[in-house]
């Protein structure tokens, strides 16, 4: 499997590299320079061009895209219904971009389309990093908080719990993120269970390629 990554920061990309290997159970061939978006909704803006570039100009077969949900509606089981599309759910939006962009692609480099792998961290990647360490942090806790109008934590609080500062340097951010990701490497089940936005990424990555 030849994998490309599209993420919002070098720290996110470092985490993704570890998680992709852990999901596949072996080191993937991940392109050295990841694609980068400047936060949401820039991910949506650059994604079609990245998909087209990978399809026609490279032999990459898989594109992994992740973003934070921030305070957008969380993707739920109801969104998985056939033909369902939630206009503000980032998972639905990213999947739609994949679908629409590659709808009429001709076969190139031996594959019909790039394998779509989408993950949405609720509300931010730091929640994935805290999974298993901080029992208060889970996708369900966030959804319950959204419904109750009282969020259990803020994105800034999650970041502080990981980095111990509101302004981590990039190397410190990457170091802390990788340290936490190491906990997940050998056993992804807790992350998969507590964060359906990650489970979706796992499922996509394990799906067969469309040739």
């Amino acid at each position: 499997m030849k994998v490309a990554l599209l993420s919002e920061s070098p720290a996110d990309e470092a985490v993704l590299r570890v998680l992709v290997d852990a999901i596949l159970g072996e080191p993937a061939k991940i392109t050295p320079a990841g694609f980068r978006a400047r936060g949401w909704p820039n991910v949506l803006q650059v994604l079609p061009a990245v998909i087209r570039h990978l399809h026609f100009n490279t032999d990459v077969d898989t594109l992994v895209v992740t973003c934070d949900s921030d305070d957008s509606p969380v993707h739920t089981e109801a969104h998985e219904a056939p033909q369902y599309y939630h206009p503000h759910c980032r998972m639905c939006q990213l999947r739609a971009v994949f679908r629409q962009t590659s709808k009429r692609f001709p076969t190139a480099h031996g594959r019909l389309k790039i394998r779509r792998v989408v993950g949405v961290a609720v509300p931010a990647l730091e929640a994935w990093l805290l999974c298993g360490r901080d029992s208060d942090v889970s996708e369900a806790a966030w959804i319950n908080g959204q419904q109750a109008g009282r969020l259990p934590y803020t994105r800034a609080e999650l970041k502080f719990r990981i980095y111990q500062t509101e302004r981590p340097s990039l190397p410190h951010e990457i170091e802390c993120a990788l340290r936490e990701t190491e906990r997940h490497r050998s056993d992804l089940r807790r992350l998969e269970y507590d964060f359906p936005g990650f489970a979706a990424l796992m499922k996509d990555l394990k799906s067969p390629a469309q040739t």
Partner: peptide, 20 residues
């Protein structure tokens, strides 16, 4: 542009030394 996060950090080091 991809290096601007690092530039921000270089300047944050001045203002928030404890974080660094």
């Amino acid at each position: 542009p991809r290096m601007l996060r690092e530039v921000r950090d270089v300047l944050y080091r001045l203002s928030y030394p404890a974080s660094f």
